[in-house]
Amino acid sequence: MRVTGVDRSTGTGGQPVYLLDMEMSQRYRHAVGSSSPFYRGLEEGVLRATRCPECGASWFPPRRFCPVDMTETAWYDLPGTGTVTAATRVHSPPPFGGIDPPYVLASIRLDGVDGGITHRVTGSETPKKGTVVTVTFIEEAAAHPLLAIAFSVRRGEA
């Protein structure tokens, strides 16, 4: 932390007011931990989920332990298709950057797993509930690895 300025003024009751401008910045090394195989999958062009060998429940976002019976799950590949539950056009960039606003964001129920993701849909049209979308892998470096994917509306199904 460092102090970059001092402001001396007077309050509404005439009392002295003293303000410090302070700055602080952090760098983090963030372990994605049990989601690591998912992130590796993104680099290989595949979306991965997990399934519980005990009860058969499938999880996306993937979970290392099945929350139902605490059994260690196994990884498998998803087809990469899904259905929109709701969509919105967002007018500010995400915190890590990487998308110029406005952009379309949708809650998507994924095929092949009992789960879903809230993610970007390409194009400027806001898809309606029930619209079928497919994952697209983006070639250029993304601001965050999760932005290496987006979803596209299947031709003729908008």
Binding site: V32, S35, T88, V90, P94, P95, F96, T118, L146, L147
Partner: peptide, 13 residues
């Protein structure tokens, strides 16, 4: 892990 990278304000959800 799953939301912050794609939306920046709570207006979105």
């Amino acid at each position: 892990e799953w939301e912050t990278p794609v939306f920046g304000t709570f207006a979105a959800p």
